[in-house]
Computed example of a mutant assay.
Amino acid sequence: MTDPFVPYSASHLLMLLSLLAASLLLYAFRYRLRGSPGAKKLLRLFLAALLAVSEAVLDAWNIAEGTWNPRYTLPLELCSITLLLSVVMLLTRGRLLYQILFFAGIGGALQALFTPNLVYGYPHIRFFQFFIAHMLIILASLYMTWVENHKPTWKSVGVAMIFLNIAAFIVGVLDYVLDANYMFLMHKPSTPSLLDVLGPYPYYLLAEEGIALLFFALMQLIFFVLPEKWRRKSALRGPSAM
C-alpha cells in the first residue's frame, strides 16, 4: 500500500530538484539546440508527446480505478488547461499561446509543485504523473524561451491575465452546472495550499488576482527586463574599458 503524500518529504524535494536539474540542462544546451534544427525539432516534439501522454495516463488511471467522474476528472483545472495548450504551443510554436503560457503555465505549475493538491505519495503512479506533468508544463515554456528564442513583453502580462479571467469565467459556469470545484472557484482544496492564507471565499479569489499579477510582473522583470538592462550596461562599459 502506498503511503500518503507528505509535503517536503525526501521524494517531494527530489522532484523539485529534478525540475531544477532539467531546467539547468535546457539552459546550458540552448545554443547547441538552436544550432541544430533536427535536435530542436526532436526535443520540441518529444516534450509535446510527453505532455499528451501524461494527461492520457491520468485519464486511463481514473477509468481503470473507476474514479472517472465529470465533477472531478475533466481537464478543467488551470494546470490541465495549460498542459493541453502547451502541447498546441509546442506543435505550432505559436507566439500568442507562448505569451499566455509563459506566465499562466509556469506560475500555475510552480504553485502546484510547491503546494501539491495530491493524496498519493511515492511510488504511486499518480505521484509520478502529477510531478512529471507539472514539470513538463514549465519546461515547455522554458524551451520556447531559451531554444526558440521567444520573449514576452509587458503587454503579454495583460494577455495572460485576460486569459486567466476568461478561463475562470468559463470554468466557473461549468462548476455551477456540474456542481464541481475546478480551479477551486467554489471553495478551497482539502489539502494545504497557498489559498489557506488568502482569506475566506470569495475573497481568496480576488487575492489570487493580485498575486498572479504581481508574480507575472516579477517574472517579466527577472527573466527579461533586468537581464536586458545588465547586457546594455555591459555593452556600454566594454569599449571604455579597453
Rank of each mutant, 00 (worst) to 15 (best):
4 P>D: 07
5 F>S: 05
7 P>V: 12
8 Y>E: 01
8 Y>W: 11
11 S>P: 03
16 L>C: 06
17 L>I: 07
18 S>G: 12
22 A>T: 11
22 A>E: 05
25 L>I: 10
26 L>V: 07
28 A>Y: 04
30 R>V: 11
31 Y>C: 12
31 Y>F: 13
36 S>K: 11
36 S>Y: 12
37 P>K: 03
42 L>C: 12
48 A>V: 06
52 A>C: 12
52 A>R: 00
53 V>C: 14
55 E>F: 12
56 A>D: 07
57 V>A: 14
58 L>Y: 15
59 D>T: 15
64 A>W: 05
64 A>V: 05
65 E>T: 14
65 E>M: 14
67 T>P: 01
68 W>A: 14
69 N>K: 03
70 P>G: 10
75 P>I: 01
76 L>V: 05
76 L>N: 08
80 S>G: 09
87 V>F: 04
88 V>Y: 03
90 L>V: 02
90 L>K: 00
110 L>N: 02
113 L>C: 05
118 L>C: 00
118 L>K: 03
121 G>A: 06
122 Y>C: 08
126 R>Q: 07
128 F>I: 03
129 Q>N: 14
132 I>F: 10
135 M>W: 02
137 I>P: 07
146 W>V: 09
151 K>C: 12
151 K>F: 07
154 W>P: 05
156 S>K: 00
157 V>C: 06
163 F>W: 02
164 L>Q: 06
168 A>C: 02
170 I>H: 12
171 V>E: 00
176 Y>L: 15
179 D>A: 15
180 A>D: 04
180 A>S: 01
181 N>I: 04
181 N>E: 04
183 M>R: 02
184 F>A: 09
185 L>R: 08
185 L>M: 05
186 M>Y: 13
187 H>L: 14
188 K>Y: 10
193 S>R: 09
194 L>F: 08
194 L>S: 10
194 L>T: 04
198 L>Q: 04
200 P>Y: 05
202 P>Q: 08
203 Y>C: 02
205 L>Y: 03
206 L>G: 12
208 E>R: 12
212 A>I: 09
212 A>T: 05
213 L>D: 00
215 F>E: 03
216 F>D: 05
218 L>N: 04
222 I>V: 08
225 V>D: 12
225 V>M: 10
227 P>Q: 01
227 P>R: 04
229 K>H: 02
231 R>C: 11
233 K>I: 14
236 L>A: 10
237 R>Y: 13
239 P>R: 00
242 M>S: 15
